[in-house]
Amino acid sequence: MVEVQFRFRDDEIAGDPAVTVDAFLTQTNATAVRIEPGDDARALLPFLERLQLIEVSFPAWTDGRGYSSARVLREAGYQGELRAVGDVVIDMLSHLRRCGFDAFAPEHGLNEADAQAAFERWDNVYQATGDGRAAIWAKRHG
């Protein structure tokens, strides 16, 4: 299993391995699930209470469906860990954070200094995405 390289949560890392969405929907006790790009994140909405970990898989970083999956889950109130796994690259990190990801398990470890710089890159943002950051328009109109 690929290690979590960056995590922005204080709770314990979930112990259970993530199962596929299909498996999750037929199991009543799983607490961790893994979404592939073609999966409908909304299928998980009835079960958010018991989920501790949702992994969102990026087989290729240029396939951006995972960003929408993440926002759909956060907008529905999911509070557990949202972990980006797979082909996660430096230049995605700040955007993934904005869409609600709070853990990152890149299949190839990232340069720590470059990653930190990427996380801290944007002091301001143009959009409201539900990540708690005030959009520029909100700052303008305080």
């Binding site: 869409c99 143009y126 959009q127």
Partner: peptide
């Protein structure tokens, strides 16, 4: 323009 600039969800359409 402002909404679409660096929109985090829509950079890899």
């Amino acid at each position: 323009r402002q909404w679409s600039s660096f929109h985090p969800e829509f950079l890899t359409l």
